[in-house]
């Protein structure tokens, strides 16, 4: 394994929820990253944000790791969940709630419902 791959593997396994994104959760630098970070923030999910713009090796490495060409990428308990489109769909369908629940990740159910009501 390359260094980037090892580093990514350790990060996604050591943290319940990790978002590889452009920018940080407090200051996203891309609309797609911003949308996913915004959903997680709003739902009160405790997650680690990794800014790929700060490290070229990680920026390419994360695409190789998941064999997925785009960023953001969300990981729960070491498993790749999806990018912006998939997370948006899963939020609206309730599948994201289910996934978090199954993995014992705390989140605010009322906030999740509010997102769904606002987008119904």
């Amino acid at each position: 394994m390359t260094d980037a791959r090892t580093q990514i593997d350790e990060t996604v396994k050591a943290n319940d929820v990790v978002l590889y994104m452009k920018g940080t959760k407090m200051m996203p630098q891309c609309g797609f990253s911003s949308r996913v970070a915004g959903v997680l923030n709003y739902m009160g999910v405790d997650f680690l944000d990794v800014n790929v713009l700060a490290d070229d090796a990680i920026r390419q490495g994360i695409k190789d790791y998941s064999d997925w060409p785009t960023i953001p990428q969300l990981y729960v308990k070491g498993e790749f969940v999806g990018g912006c489109d998939i997370i948006t769909e899963m939020t609206l369908s309730g599948e994201l709630d289910q996934l978090l629940q199954e993995n014992g990740v705390a989140y605010d159910k009322d906030a999740a419902e509010k997102i769904r009501e606002a987008n119904a």
Binding site: F32, D67, P69, T70, F80, G82, C84, I86
Partner: peptide, 27 residues
């Protein structure tokens, strides 16, 4: 699965095309 659908689309478009564009929204 959702991921499998997106992967199939990425595959059909080809790596070169997918990496050459900045953003691809898929529904």
């Amino acid at each position: 699965s959702r991921i499998a659908r997106h992967r199939a689309i990425h595959e059909a478009l080809g790596k070169e095309l997918v990496t050459s564009i900045h953003a691809l929204g898929i529904s």
